[in-house]
Design a protein around this nucleic acid. Structure first.
Lengths: 184, 184, 184, 184
DNA sequence: TATGAATGAGTGTTCATTCAT
DNA sequence: CATGAATGAACACTCATTCAT
């Protein structure tokens, strides 16, 4: 029973922390987060020994959601479409959750999207897309994650609008696709 | 002429600020910068009335250097090569000056490479490369700067090594180049 | 109930602030006050968001005490005696709380004894004394407060001893009393 | 010759210091004073080893002027008029040079108007006025200076307008004058 | 257990004072 | 000798973290 309360508190704190971080950036204060979550600062410290732990938890939380999305798309009928849709959605999401990834990354936390489980989920999407001939076979996970990270970071920093996002990703996606010709 | 000392101090402060900013990110303290520069905090404040002015000065300094490089390459014989070389050099430079652009951008300063003079210099490179058939004609400045910013940001955040940088930029450059085929 | 501690701390801070202000004048530092109060500087800031708020609180505190004293004397049998006794007591008190009123006044805070409630209380004393023929009828509140303020200020600044205070106030009081002569 | 320059600089600094002190109060900065005086801060320090010495010099300067005024009035035909005129002028002057006396006094400098030479000059005015029957014989220098200081201080602090000054001084002067009656 | 008052090191910034020029 | 750049202690104030309640 007590566990239920604790879990709810944890969720409320994480939710509040995301909101406050998005709004105030890196300088968000624990008091602000606590107050939005409707708890005392002490309650946050019970769950997260230090501010950085709270940040870490947010990253993990986000990663988990992204991994879940990747898992879902892993069974989509069109592997190429699934791959590019996933890429697009992540960047789109980053634009909205502005400042967050930046804040976390700048906080010295690795947001490389390199947490094992998500890495695996993304790799599945990549391999399937390559198998379907939608992505060049010589593209590795390292480059893919680098591009994903780069576009997310920039989308957040500069608040890419939909048009810019579409046009920029079009170029990146073109670079990822196999050369149409070079036949004969 | 004390002015000589003052000028040297200004340079030392800027240098130290770049280093400390790169190391500690946005939260770098004036004291830390002063101590690395080997001057008192008051000396920084004589040149830069507020912390943000110091940041601004660094941005301007950097922009100026990038613009100068672009101007230089604007007269290179191979326009396509010049364009891609410029892109590569900037990203390479960013890797070394880790966190800096990010820190500055997050400080509310526009590091979009959008300062007029540098924008013009880059546009020249782009137009020439497009004229030489090295870059697709439908690529605009907005997308180009977005990609440049994205790769710089990511290179800094994650410390891309040479191999990763080469492989990632290869994909982006491929997306920027005209489709090789669709020929007669 | 932590509130008990908080209340005690507030009182200790106010007490310490009066002392330090009296000793160091306007330039009293928050650290000094905190240290004398035996609390951290943060504790002061919890109760008083800015230095000026602390000053204000002290002024309000003092005014309240002076108003209470005036109210008490308002029902004394001899109105003239009550009036002059009040004047004397305030100046006497000021001598002890050296520099305080001055410090507060110079801080841009109105210590003119002009806070509404105290103004009213003093006016009652004046009117009653005039009714009893102990004070000239043409003396207004403005002059009275000016004289009160003047003597308090000087008593503080220069540390009037009892003898000087008595002799100086005797002159002022003589000026306030109706001319003894001009009789039939 | 050099002496002339030095003397002129000293005068300019003192003049500037009075102005700046009147405007900015106690927190006036040496740089501000230097800049208004049209000299470097170092030049001030050559004449006045520390800020307090500058303040002291201003006090002395003022005292000298007040003493000169007293000397002048010492030979006026109507001793009583001279005495009250002097009192009024000093208070009036204080109102204009707002903040100055306060600033000086709060700086820990004794502005008691007790510097020997001025003390003597004022005493002459008092004795002559007493001799002329314009001031009670039992008024001593201590009370007189106390009243003078008190009214100056208050006039400055609260910016007495002409009306208030006149009415307040009227009361004080009445207290200083011999009782009109008490005759047989 | 949750709370929020208390803590104090740390921040950006100012300014009296010194001293190289 | 005047100058003003350099210094660094000091200031008001913030905030992550602790701990008494």
């Amino acid at each position: 029973m007590m566990r239920a309360d604790a879990r709810r508190n944890r969720a409320r704190v994480l939710e509040a922390a995301e909101v406050v971080l998005a709004r105030d950036g890196l300088s968000a204060s624990m008091r602000e987060i606590a107050s939005l979550a409707g708890v005392g600062v002490g309650t946050i410290y019970r769950q997260f020994p230090a501010k950085e732990d709270l940040y870490q938890a947010i990253v993990v939380d986000r990663m988990a959601r992204l991994a879940a999305l990747a898992d879902e798309l892993a069974t989509a009928p069109d592997a190429g479409e699934a791959f590019f849709e996933y890429f697009t959605m992540i960047v789109e999401d980053s634009t909205v959750k502005k400042v967050l990834v930046d804040a976390l990354a700048a906080a010295g936390i690795d947001a490389k999207a390199g947490t094992p489980d998500i890495r695996g989920a993304i790799e599945t999407l990549l391999v399937r897309a390559q198998g379907a001939g939608a992505v060049r076979g010589d593209v590795g996970m390292a480059e893919l994650l680098a591009l994903l990270s780069a576009t997310c970071l920039a989308a957040q920093h500069h608040g890419w609008d939909e048009d810019l996002r579409t046009r920029t990703l079009a170029i990146v996606f073109d670079g990822l696709r196999p050369s149409p010709a070079t036949p004969a």
